[in-house]
Write a protein that binds this DNA or RNA. Structure first.
Length: 490
RNA sequence: CGGGGCGUGGCCUAGUCCGGUUACGGCGCCUGGUUUGGGACCAGGAGAUCGCAGGUUCGAAUCCUGCCGCCCCGACCA
């Protein structure tokens, strides 16, 4: 724990990896591409999960759980869906092990071959729509608004802590509707939920938009997304919400009796966010001293550290801090009093900075004598000595101030690195500078692909609030009706 | 799949080129003591199939062959 972080400037990627490990968020497991999420990291994810779950319920959704395994044949039912996921599926082919006849541990029992292979879900549309077929008969069964919290597996070639791991945790909402309009409205509603969560809780500004055809979810009619800008100038897709049209209903033959007695295929959406949000959170706020957490998601909002000489002084100061901790807790603040006598205060200061605790209160003999307390804030790395009286109110104010400061700081960074480009040269320069680039595009997949090949930049989204603006494509010069957002991305 | 790197107590690491007593050191851990306003110090202690399997040799962490695993950079990524 005593080692120093690599600085962002020296090696951003190494900084990120060091930070994840040193802040005790996660570690690599021995399984390729898979990580162990450690208790502190998981506590942050649990906060996200709890808040999102509440938001889903407030918008009328309920939770359910579907199988981890999906029969292979289900995948072939929706053509573009299987095409999108086929290359990264883990497949279960056998169900039994046996002792190796040669005495080398266990081997797969060749006689225990499954008649039909099972796919470890990379996403659950197919198994869920196969189930919805039985649940939906009439318009009275609609809308069906279900979410599940689950793990999924995508066999990625290259992985990165939280941003892309072979197995990850997420939620996936799957809804069924009577009309196309309703389904679109649902997809848009959930996009708003995600955007709210990102901004209000993660203090992370996001761009709301719709994906181009190239970037669209396999099997969707439209993919809405929120895109965030990281400190190194690369974009991160933070959440997606898909309008699936009738694609899955047709693939799984899910029809309902309409109000006028007809039969129609159901309209669908799906939407999800994952542990990738952890990566987004880390890369949005953290600095060279470690993690920086927005108070609303911090497992510990305030840590109290006693400074003392000898057991007598310790008893006195810890008692005083216990009182403050109890008051803070009663006021709804998540608080930890670290009275571990085996660690010195200086060690604790460094440790909680590394772990991103928003506010640290320290009290020593000088404070006891003068009725003061030291308040240190993580976001600005500043500290002040203030009266211990009214500390609860002061801390609550400060937490709000930090939450707001993190959002405005991130928003400022995102805005200042968003550039417009009207020529190919400007476009290249803007990309190299990092950040979002707003530019005209002729609307064809071919041009987007060409730009991607040349620059590694993709269209992150076509912003929902993009004003109509006539222009010409930066590549082909063909007419364009509005600007889209390009960036290099994770 | 291409390129690079690594594999030695829980973690980091020296030693490998050029084979030779008991495998260096640090962090952490245990015991005792002194300390405590920014990652303390002293003393003692425990902890190792040197990734795996063969081979060469009187002798292998070190040389040879094969294999396995992980990380990083690319390719890939709804």
């Amino acid at each position: 724990m005593a080692s120093k972080l690599t600085s962002r400037e020296a090696d951003y990627s190494k900084w990120y990896n060091d930070l994840v490990v040193q802040a005790d968020l996660a570690q690599h497991s021995d399984v390729k591409g898979c990580m162990v999420i450690k208790p502190y990291g998981f506590a942050i994810w649990e906060r996200m999960k709890d808040v999102l779950d509440e938001m889903f319920k407030e918008t009328g959704h309920v939770n359910a759980y579907f199988p981890l395994f999906i029969p292979k044949s289900y995948f072939s039912k929706e053509a573009s869906h299987v095409e999108g996921f086929a290359k990264e599926c883990a497949v279960v082919t056998h169900y039994r092990l046996m002792n190796d006849p040669d005495g080398n541990g266990v081997v797969v029992d060749p006689t225990a071959k499954l008649e039909e292979e099972l796919i470890v879900r990379p996403t659950s549309e197919t198994i869920i729509w196969n189930t919805y077929k039985d649940w939906i008969q009439s318009y009275r069964d609609l809308p069906l608004l279900i979410n599940q919290w689950a793990n999924v597996v995508r066999w990625e070639m290259r992985t990165r802590f939280f941003l892309r791991t072979s197995e990850f945790l997420w939620q996936e909402g799957h809804t069924a509707h009577e009309t196309s309009e309703e389904a679109v409205e649902e997809a848009r509603r959930m996009l708003e939920v995600y955007a709210d969560f990102a901004e209000q809780w993660m203090a992370m500004p996001v761009l709301k938009g719709v994906k181009s055809i190239n970037e669209r979810f396999a099997g969707a009619v439209d993919t809405y997304c929120i895109e965030a800008m990281m400190q190194d100038g690369k974009a991160l897709q933070a959440g997606t919400s898909h309008f699936l049209g009738q694609n899955f209903a047709k693939a799984f033959d899910v029809k309902f009796a309409t109000r006028d007695g007809g039969q129609e295929h159901v309209w669908a959406t799906s939407w999800g966010v994952s542990t990738r949000l952890m990566g987004a959170l880390i890369m949005t706020h953290s600095d060279d001293a470690g993690l920086v957490l927005p108070p609303k998601l911090a497992p510990i909002e305030v840590v109290l550290v006693p400074i003392y000489k000898g057991p007598e002084q310790m008893g006195e100061i810890v008692a005083a801090l216990k009182g403050i901790a109890a008051e803070l807790k009663a006021a709804g603040v998540r608080v930890k009093l670290d009275d571990d006598d085996s660690k010195r205060s200086g060690w604790k200061f460094a440790e909680y900075e590394l772990k991103g605790v928003p506010v640290r209160l320290a009290m020593g003999p000088r404070d006891m004598a003068g009725g003061t307390i030291e308040i240190a804030r993580r976001d600005t790395q500043t500290k002040t000595v203030e009266s211990a009286k009214g500390i609860v109110e002061r801390v609550k104010e400060l937490l709000e101030e930090i939450q707001a400061n993190l959002l405005s700081r991130a928003a400022e960074r995102t805005t200042s690195t968003t550039r417009t480009a009207d020529t190919w040269e400007e476009f290249l320069a803007a990309l190299d500078a990092g950040g979002f680039v707003s530019a005209h595009w002729d609307g064809t997949p071919e041009t987007e692909e060409w730009i991607k090949q040349q620059t590694k930049a993709t269209i992150r989204c076509i912003p929902l609030d993009a004003p109509e603006e006539v222009g010409t494509c930066i590549k082909t010069g063909a007419p364009s009706c509005c600007r889209v957002i390009f960036a290099r991305a994770y």
